[in-house]
């Protein structure tokens, strides 16, 4: 409790008009707490941290915390992050996105940021729904799900965000749920340390829309569901494709080294142009 009070006073903006906009039971607050805890452990100067978000429920996160914060346009957080990191490489650049934000409207920016390997620690809070607009299906909504925009069941298969990031070249890819906060904090820490583009998928719950089908206490039910349906990367490796269906594979999926855009740019300065 004392630790929490200390973190609240140190990192939450006292000048901001609380309460926050998230529904009771939302997972974004859990992620925010983990994020703050890791930043505190790493002893980063608040002046050197830039928190950038897109649009949606997750997009509102930066306003509550006392860093350099930027709430951008829908899907474009990584483009702003790229500009900031290249213009001032000493800053710790953190991008926070939602699933629709990062993978639908921002899908192009997402893959290119991973390919380009600018040093950005990025987090995709995946609640499998467009929450702020009222519960429409997103690119991570499972096939067949009934949502506000798929009243007959979602016709499209869902994206695997981590595999997308891996295929696009991300040097660190991890997944945790907001139930597994210790793992989540480990992954956040590793993403911060990574010299390159790091992406952590944070599986979360939207208690207001999909949660309606989870009974009278959706937050607890949905987090229990996260607990019961998660398997570690090591466990998953022993299972067949069919057995992995419907499971959340948590842990570190990719951790590799590759020169960052900034390092390559420094090398370029020693060359002569060829055209």
């Amino acid at each position: 409790m004392r630790e929490t009070t200390h973190l609240v006073h140190k990192y939450l903006r006292s000048s901001k008009r609380f309460p926050h906009i998230w529904c009771a039971g939302c997972g974004i607050g859990i992620f925010m707490q983990s994020l703050i805890r890791v930043i505190d452990q790493k002893e980063y100067s608040k002046d050197d941290v830039v928190l950038i978000s897109g649009i949606g429920c997750s997009g509102r996160l930066p306003v509550y915390v006392d860093f350099n914060t930027l709430h951008t346009t829908h899907g474009r957080a990584l483009t702003f992050a790229t500009g900031i990191k290249l213009a001032k490489p000493r800053l710790k650049v953190i991008a926070i996105m939602g699933d629709g934000d990062a993978i639908a409207i921002g899908g192009n920016h997402f893959i290119h940021a991973a390919r380009r390997n600018v040093e950005i620690a990025s987090f995709v809070i995946n609640n499998q729904v467009y929450g702020m607009t009222g519960g429409q299906c997103s690119p991570t909504t499972p096939d067949g799900t009934i949502t506000a925009s798929s009243p007959y069941g979602n016709l499209e298969p869902d994206f695997n965000i981590c595999r997308l990031a891996e295929a696009a070249g991300a040097t660190f890819v991890g997944r945790a749920t907001v139930y597994h906060t210790r793992l989540l904090e480990q992954l956040i820490g590793k993403a911060f340390e990574k010299k390159g583009f790091a992406m952590v998928e944070v599986v979360s719950q939207c208690v207001t829309y999909p949660g309606r089908t989870f009974g009278p206490d959706p937050a607890v039910a949905m987090m229990k569901w996260q607990r019961d349906n998660s398997i570690t990367v090591a466990q998953a490796s022993k299972l067949s494709e069919a057995e992995r269906q419907g499971k959340i594979e948590i842990g570190i999926l990719v951790d590799k080294e590759r020169p960052t855009y900034h390092e390559e740019y420094q090398k370029l300065l020693r060359k002569k142009p060829k055209v």
Partner: peptide
């Protein structure tokens, strides 16, 4: 200075605004 080719024009202006927020004339 810094030059970067982005994936589209939306991203280009996003990066320009980001760089300007970090203090660079862009």
């Amino acid at each position: 200075g810094i030059f970067i080719q982005m994936e589209d024009e939306i991203a280009s202006l996003g990066a320009v605004i980001g760089a300007s927020l970090a203090g660079a004339k862009s």
